[in-house]
């Protein structure tokens, strides 16, 4: 296992642990305001200080991790759940009208800047975590469809697929039984990277007020709230900013590490 993978997994687990623990314990009620105690810098009672409403930042970061992870995870799930079957179908019917429709549809979604369309979707259907998930999820579909199709195409030319064909298996069965297991590594790596992008997208949407709504804490909104106070209470911006950096960095390192670890060619070269 590479250093990247270990470091990435450690950082990601840290955030994941914070999110999971927040279900049973946070130092304070994350939504409890205590205005006389506002804008405290990190101290023994409030490890990450307090925000402009006197809420405990540590508790908010923990629950915010939950928001970010939940949104990104479900969004990646949507992308995989729809994108992978589409990619498999396009590869199985390479060059047919089905392939054309699927891939040109993907191009269409790709042609739009994702965050702008996500803003459009949440602006039309209302701000909130669910709509943010849908908006981010839609843009994950073509990513997974393309990567699946690309990898599956070369597999279709291989002898073991021909053998399966000769054995009388249908294209759909071949796709599921033989193609999919061979692209799964690739999907795990891509999934990790998309997951980190999803966290960033959620933070971006929350930053402009279109993600999870108050009182649900969200790192993006914490950053937005901190904007006018950076000059006298920099911890308000630094702490959620660092949380986002740690998560995205962790996931990216883990993605890189996983790629190296899972890719048989690289593994073979190393051995």
């Amino acid at each position: 296992m590479s250093r990247n993978l270990i470091l990435g997994a450690a950082l990601s687990s840290l955030i994941l642990a914070a999110a999971l623990i927040s279900f049973v314990w946070t130092p304070y009620d994350f939504a409890a305001m205590n205005i006389p105690e506002k804008l405290q810098t990190p101290n023994a009672r409030h490890w990450f200080g307090t925000d402009h409403f006197g809420r405990d930042m540590f508790s908010m970061i923990m629950v915010g991790a939950r928001t970010s992870i939940a949104v990104a995870l479900v969004a990646v799930g949507i992308g995989m759940g729809l994108g992978v079957p589409l990619g498999l179908a396009a590869a199985a019917r390479k060059g047919s009208w089905l392939d054309e429709v699927i891939m040109r549809g993907n191009d269409l979604v790709f042609a739009f800047p994702s965050l702008v369309i996500a803003i459009l979707i949440t602006a039309v259907y209302g701000a909130g975590a669910i709509n943010a998930i849908i908006a981010i999820g839609i843009f994950n579909i073509p990513v997974f469809a393309r990567i699946t199709r690309g990898a599956a195409l070369s597999l279709w030319e291989r002898e073991f697929i021909m053998a399966a064909r000769v054995a009388g298996k249908s294209d759909a069965r071949i796709s599921v039984e033989h193609i999919l297991p061979n692209v799964v590594n690739l999907l795990i790596v891509q999934g990790t990277i998309q997951f980190s992008l999803g966290i960033l997208a959620e933070a971006g949407l929350s930053y402009v007020g279109l993600g999870a709504q108050p009182p649900t804490p969200s790192w993006g909104r914490m950053l937005a709230d901190a904007q006018t106070m950076v000059s006298f209470a920099p911890h308000l911006a630094l702490i959620p900013g660092l949380a986002i950096i740690v998560t995205v960095l962790g996931l990216n390192l883990m993605g890189d590490g996983l790629r190296d670890w899972l890719d048989p060619r690289i593994r073979a070269a190393r051995a």
């Binding site: 939504a31 409890a32 409403f53």
Partner: peptide
């Protein structure tokens, strides 16, 4: 900001 911030406080107080 009086509405957006005030709204969050009132939301907490009503809760």
């Amino acid at each position: 900001s009086y509405a957006r911030r005030g709204g969050e406080i009132i939301q907490a107080q009503l809760a």
